[in-house]
Amino acid sequence: MGLIDIIKKATFFEILQGMSVTGKYAASKKFTIEYPKEKSIPYPRFRGSQALLADPVTGELNCDACHLCETICPSQCITIESSETPDGKKSLDEFTIDLSRCVFCGFCEEVCPRAAIVMTANYELASYDKRDFILTKEWLIANAVHAHKELKGR
């Protein structure tokens, strides 16, 4: 063991070295954010809970009940009930997403041919009640306020 090693051991050099880093970071800016007070803003591609979009002019839902999203969904959490109106168009009666099964893969948004279902920036989805995870059509329409500004093509 050389003299330097002895001095290092006697002065607890490693501990001092470690503490100097601690001191440096204690004085520097915080990296984290205080969550409930401050909120992180997701990027435009963020995949939060789903929303059903309506036509801004007529107020009608974009969805024409084609069942594509229901079919592609890997966890089979979308349930759609549709009926035919007298004039031969399909109308959407029921649109339910079971959020407790959803894996947030975004496939429903990706395959939708009408840009009717989108993933939003809404990530605050925790709840004490399991029933809250069944998203109804009304909830999904109301959730459109969280939709990302630009429509995401890929």
Binding site: Y43, R45, F46, R47, V103, F104, G106, F107, M119
Partner: peptide, 12 residues
Amino acid sequence: WEMLTGARLTHS
């Protein structure tokens, strides 16, 4: 990752 794929862990 979030910017590119939209998810932080499960990118798909």
